Simulated scan of single mutants.
Amino acid sequence: MDLLSFVVALVAVLIGAVGQRMIGMGWGLVVTPAIALVAGPLAAVLVVNLYGAIACLVILPQVWRDVDWRRLLWIAIPAVALMVPGLLLAKGLDTDLLRVVVGAIAIAGVVISVAFTRASRTHDGPVLRVATGTAIGVLNASVGMGAPAVGVYSLVSGWQDRTFVATMQPFWVLVSGAIVVVRPFVAPDGSPDWPLWAWLVLAVPVVAGVLLGNRLAHLVNRTVVRAAIIGLSVLGGGALIVTGAMGLAG
């Protein structure tokens, strides 16, 4: 791991943790493109899910009372059930092709979310919840990018209040934690070849980001935070598409 790559990872994790605490999403949108760019898409799946679960565990005690447990189960059960096919998909695809896929998903998720934001009607129900969980399970396990599906569901269903922020914490603990546990048995290759100190240091911006998000949650306009995360997602996704395309062309 070179110094520049490590700094990029640290900054991405810090920003992702802040966004996760403030608006219930942003972790995967910010961290996945950055880690995939500096360490590869397979490595990104492990890093994003491991530290994402840690971040959500830190946040969870603060939002426990607002969790919508019924809606959580509707989405989490299919997400966990589909993680093995997602891991097998990641294992079977070319690395550069995965980079392009991750970048395209990041950008597509942003475009779809913005389009649904303009819609006046909302839709929700068991079918939409199961479909959302299925998409999250496959995408998160294969490319570490289940966040766009979460964002689309929150906008389509109109679920954007404090219960959304709260419910996303145990949801990612369950989904990401399950992927971290199962991944060594299904797709053991592709883990970052980082020294122990790097793994330990990377946990620091996770906790720091959550603490910073606590301070800013009631002071900063969430629309501004969401816009910043969208911008970073588009930039990171674009960089991944270019990198992957160059690798496929070469």
Results as ranks from 00 to 15, higher is better:
M1R: 15
D2R: 15
S5D: 13
L10T: 11
G16N: 03
G19S: 02
I23E: 03
G28Q: 05
L29A: 10
V30A: 08
T32C: 04
P33T: 00
A34F: 09
A34S: 12
I35F: 12
L37S: 13
L37F: 10
P41C: 11
L42Q: 13
L42R: 14
A44P: 15
V45R: 09
L46E: 14
V48I: 02
I54E: 09
I54K: 01
I54Q: 03
A55Y: 00
C56N: 07
C56Q: 04
L57K: 03
P61N: 05
P61V: 00
Q62V: 04
V63R: 09
D66L: 11
D66C: 04
V67L: 05
D68E: 14
I75Q: 14
A76T: 10
A76D: 10
A79S: 15
V80H: 06
L82E: 09
P85Y: 10
G86T: 05
L89F: 05
L89K: 01
L93W: 05
T95K: 10
D96S: 12
L97E: 07
L98G: 09
L98N: 08
V101G: 04
I105M: 11
I105G: 03
I105W: 00
A108S: 15
V110H: 06
R121E: 10
T122K: 10
H123M: 14
D124C: 01
D124V: 01
G125W: 04
G125V: 02
G125R: 06
L128H: 05
T132A: 11
I136Y: 13
L139R: 07
A141Y: 04
S142A: 10
V143Y: 10
V143K: 14
G146Y: 03
V150I: 13
V150T: 12
V152F: 10
Y153L: 15
L155A: 09
V156H: 04
S157G: 15
G158N: 04
G158I: 02
G158M: 03
G158Y: 01
Q160I: 00
T163P: 07
A166M: 04
T167C: 07
M168N: 06
W172Q: 10
W172G: 07
L174N: 03
V181W: 08
V182I: 13
P184M: 11
P184S: 14
F185R: 15
A187M: 14
D189Y: 01
D189P: 14
G190H: 05
D193W: 11
P195E: 15
A198T: 12
L202Y: 12
L202H: 13
A203Y: 01
A208C: 03
A208Q: 08
G209I: 00
G209V: 01
V210A: 06
N214L: 07
R215W: 06
L219C: 14
V220W: 01
T223Q: 13
T223G: 10
V225N: 02
R226W: 03
A227E: 11
A228N: 05
I229W: 00
I229C: 00
S233C: 13
V234D: 09
V234Q: 12
V234H: 11
V234G: 03
L240Q: 09
I241G: 10
T243M: 09
T243E: 12
T243K: 13
T243G: 08
A245Q: 14
M246P: 02
M246K: 15
L248S: 07
A249W: 13
G250D: 05
